[in-house]
Nucleic acid binder design. Structure first.
Lengths: 230, 230
DNA sequence: TGCAAGACTTGACGCCGGTCAAGTCTCGGG
DNA sequence: CCCGAGACTTGACCGGCGTCAAGTCTTGCA
């Protein structure tokens, strides 16, 4: 596991953070923590998909999708602030739980760990900034297209991808109603991007890039601040 | 200046970061950097008000307002990533310019600086998260009310405040058109929050808190991750 | 294999908020 | 003192997206 949090740390240092850590497997739709909670653990997602979300059942809305390798909200865990949002698994998932107090201590003890934390936080901040830009500068169809294109970048299949979550969750992540999502797929089909079932397919790259509008997401090759979140 | 970036660092360490640093004063509406630029400097705002924004003149939109003590996008400067957005002064402003390469080196040299960077980034990330929540879970009037209430928290006058920027910029920050802003003030007036000219006044605290909906912003007294941005 | 529950789609409709256009108000400069 | 430009407001209109209500399609399970 090339965990950015442990980059360039020696074995002893890593062992110190992992001390008292446990690996847990959860079924789908398991709540990991709720907004307002005090963080006891630093969560590292090892497998499966999880979601950060806000609000209660009829009015909840998704904030981020987390995939393998992602860290949950170190901003809260590492500085002992209450969570701003809740988290749950969407698929069955396995999580590495590190004790927050141990991690916090390592922050003050190991310089390299502090550097790594900075880098991870910087990456997450840029992700968040991009999402703000998306919400403020793009229409719903543009946001959806941009999201799908990013999905395609990260897939191994060229110019295609598979939806990692249900359309309901996808809608929530993109910030639209599920009904609107369906209709929006039709709009995208007219612009070179097709979705049928869980398969996503680019038929006209140029047209859909154009449709997306500003910032076709900066060249990922340039990005040293690795973040896996969607 | 109680700059969180320099917290608990000794004089020598601070001096090293400040080396080659310069203080600049700019008139209003000066562009400090543009999206896509490579960061040469780490900007610290010493006085005045600045804005992070995205896009070109007719389609631009404001992301954050920065005030005294704020750091501009360390996520970009400290890890040598291109800026995701542009920045400009709104009022005349004075800025401390630190060389990005010097700061980057200090990150790897001084443990305490790395810790401070983590804390600042964590605070900025939580700010960003809150804004995402605002955009996805709140209506325009709720966002505006929440923004004004936060302004009031930070003002010295109890239950009142003065708008720090023009209404056009305020509208842009909240994510609505200037015309909508005007109309929205009337809605807020019916709910206990009055704005006339540049003066903001709470007449019915309970009613406006209720109107704001979810998350009346967590008790600032609890928040150790100091951020001044609006 | 068949049913029931949930996921997804489609249609009708309404409202929030954006846009365009025409005022009014403010303020600095000739 | 008046003018003009820009900030702000007000009104009319419209389109995007949410909501409600029926469908249809999928899937797990008996």
């Amino acid at each position: 596991m090339a965990q950015p949090l442990f980059l360039d740390m020696n074995e002893k240092q890593v062992a110190r953070v992992l001390q008292f850590g446990t690996i847990q497997s959860y079924p789908r739709e398991t709540i990991l923590f709720k907004e307002g909670d005090r963080p006891d653990f630093l969560h590292l997602l090892i497998g499966g998909i999880a979601e950060l979300y806000k609000g209660e059942s009829p009015h909840e809305c998704g904030l981020v999708l987390l995939t393998q390798g992602d860290v949950f909200m170190p901003a809260a865990s590492l500085f002992d602030e209450p969570y701003l949002n809740s988290a749950r698994t969407l698929t069955s998932a396995t999580v590495l739980l590190l004790r927050a107090d141990v991690a916090r201590q390592e922050l003050t003890r190991c310089h390299q760990f502090a550097i790594n934390v900075s880098r991870v936080l910087a990456g997450q901040f840029r992700m968040a900034t991009r999402q703000i830009i998306d919400l403020k500068c793009r229409s719903a169809p543009q946001r959806l297209a941009a999201f799908l294109l990013r999905l395609i970048e990260e897939s191994d299949i060229p110019e295609a991808a598979v939806l990692p979550v249900s359309k309901r969750h996808l809608a929530s992540r993109v910030g639209i109603a599920p009904e609107t999502l369906s209709r929006t797929f039709q709009i995208l089909a007219d612009n070179g991007l097709f979705v049928r079932g869980t398969k996503v397919l680019v038929r006209d790259r140029e047209k859909i890039d154009e449709f997306c509008g500003p910032e076709p997401y900066p060249d990922p090759a340039e990005t040293k601040l690795q973040v896996y979140a969607l």
